[in-house]
Computed example of a mutant assay.
Amino acid sequence: MSAIPEPPKILQQRLFYRGRKFNFDVNRLRLPNGAEGDWECIRHPGGSLGVPFTADGQLVLVRQYRFALQGRLLEFPAGTVEAGESPLSTIQREIEEETGYRAKQWQDLGRFPIAPGYSDEYIYAFLARDLEKLERPPAQDDDEDIEVVLMSPEEFEEKARSADIIDGKSIASYFLARPFLKG
């Protein structure tokens, strides 16, 4: 079930921070139930995530350093949707940059919010199949510290159960893709 839009009445808008990837604002609002107050929100253009699946039944993940958590996470390749870019073209670019693979088949798995309590960011999830390894993958972004990891769906599920995989967007996207995973 998707959320039915019920916009609040904006009584006062304030922008506190304009960043490279997101903005942060605090607004005085009147909610649909009549409550008034100040609410903070991270404004994000959205992200795209791919669940790359090889012909021999392996998932392609990345182990990526995440400064906010001060450690490396196992996750599916993903990236911020840039201005003028579609979510599909974002993940096509990101998979090539982060994994060195190119997918010939794409399936839209839908979208979902990441943290609706304080952000308007949605993740657009895609299943990427019919992968080919690129001879010359594009360079990774300077701020990325990434290792490519292959694993079976069974290994992925075990690592998610044991908390070796804790990335919520990757776990959610895997279960959206799961009915379509065939070797």
Results as ranks from 00 to 15, higher is better:
L15T: 12
L127V: 06
G50K: 03
L73F: 14
Y118T: 11
E147Q: 15
E121V: 04
Q105H: 15
S89V: 12
F16D: 12
Q105A: 15
A139V: 07
P179N: 14
G57Y: 04
Y124P: 01
A125D: 09
D108H: 11
G46D: 03
A78F: 09
C41L: 10
D141K: 04
T99C: 12
L131Q: 00
G71Y: 05
S48Q: 05
F112L: 02
E85V: 05
A160C: 04
T90C: 14
E135T: 15
A3Y: 14
D120R: 04
D141F: 02
P113C: 02
A172C: 07
S152G: 10
G19Y: 05
Q13G: 13
I42N: 05
N27S: 03
R72I: 07
V81E: 05
M1V: 11
V149C: 02
E98S: 00
R72H: 13
P52M: 00
D142I: 07
A177H: 04
P52S: 00
F24P: 02
R28I: 06
I10T: 13
L31A: 14
A3G: 13
D120Q: 08
S173W: 00
R20E: 14
K133D: 10
F175H: 13
Q92F: 06
D143P: 07
W39C: 04
F53H: 07
G183N: 11
I4V: 15
E85M: 10
G71R: 12
L74Y: 11
P113A: 08
I165G: 01
Q70F: 12
L176K: 08
I165N: 00
I146Q: 07
S119V: 00
